[in-house]
């Protein structure tokens, strides 16, 4: 176990260091949601701005997870560095999670910066910061696993960026992430439940007391998010095979 954790940390560092060094990207990722919030605040008022701000937490984490991980997996493979890990004692699952963490940690800095802004304007209570961050990270990991799966099915380095961006866009713009769940009729609320970001955003808003008069119960969202999380871990474990056929 100790050795596995050491390997996990090493893969995270190996593929994450370069992102820590690209600090303008980290700051950019933190500034972007603030800018979006300001636009909505100016045109829709505080209640709309608040909805969007929570939505941006989920949308940002899922999109970053999908795009950065998909690109990382494909480029690591195309640079053929991955082959050096196959012929080594590290397991494919440790490698996959290490790569996921290598993208999540720099993303976490952006999230913390963004949440500091939310804290400063009073949109998050200090007591709720930890659980909120946890929910955001669950979304991030979900996005990363989706990105990993996309990369294993579409391993073309020329298309992976575009495909991942499209998927990220669909998963954050279509479901009620940037807009409240209750603007949809009840049937549509349940229909949107097939997309994981619906539940992440619903839970996040409910936990932070942002009003949503939704038909979809919060406990259903909690269970659904758990289901999506476990399923994606299972799929990643199945897809992360070292040896090609």
């Amino acid at each position: 176990m100790k050795r596995t954790l050491r390997q996990l940390w090493a893969v995270t560092m190996l593929f994450g260091i370069e992102w820590f060094r690209r600090w303008p990207i980290i700051i950019g990722l933190a500034i972007f949601p603030v800018a979006i919030y300001l636009v909505f605040f100016l045109f829709g008022g505080e209640s709309v701005g608040k909805q969007v701000m929570y939505g941006m937490l989920i949308a940002g984490s899922i999109t970053t997870g999908i795009t950065s991980l998909a690109q990382c997996v494909v480029f690591t493979k195309s640079l053929r560095i991955q082959e050096m890990f196959v012929t080594s004692p590290i397991s494919p699952l440790t490698y996959a999670f290490g790569i996921a963490l290598s993208r999540l940690l720099p993303g976490l800095i952006s999230t913390v910066l963004f949440m500091s802004v939310m804290l400063a304007v009073g949109y998050i209570e200090p007591a709720k910061v930890v659980v909120t961050l946890l929910l955001v990270e669950v979304s991030d990991i979900l996005g990363a696993m989706l990105g990993f799966l996309v990369a294993t099915y579409f391993p073309n380095p020329q298309h992976i960026g575009g495909l991942a961006a499209m998927l990220g866009f669909l998963l954050t713009m279509v479901p009620p992430v940037l807009y409240p769940l209750d603007v949809l009729p009840p049937t549509w609320q349940y229909a949107m439940g097939i997309l994981p970001p619906t539940h992440a955003a619903h839970l996040l808003r409910a936990f932070n007391g942002v009003s949503e008069n939704a038909a979809l119960p919060v406990w259903v969202s909690a269970l659904a998010l758990l289901f999506f999380f476990v399923t994606s871990v299972y799929l990643v474990a199945r897809r992360s095979r070292w040896r090609e056929v």
Binding site: V11, L79, R80
Partner: peptide, 27 residues
């Protein structure tokens, strides 16, 4: 261990990072 054909290191890491963290990743 293997050195793959046409394998090439990425951009924003140095030689120390590559060798040291690769050894750590191997346990």
């Amino acid at each position: 261990a293997i050195v793959p054909q046409e394998g090439r290191p990425g951009q924003d890491l140095n030689a120390w990072d590559y060798v040291y963290w690769y050894l750590r990743a191997r346990g």
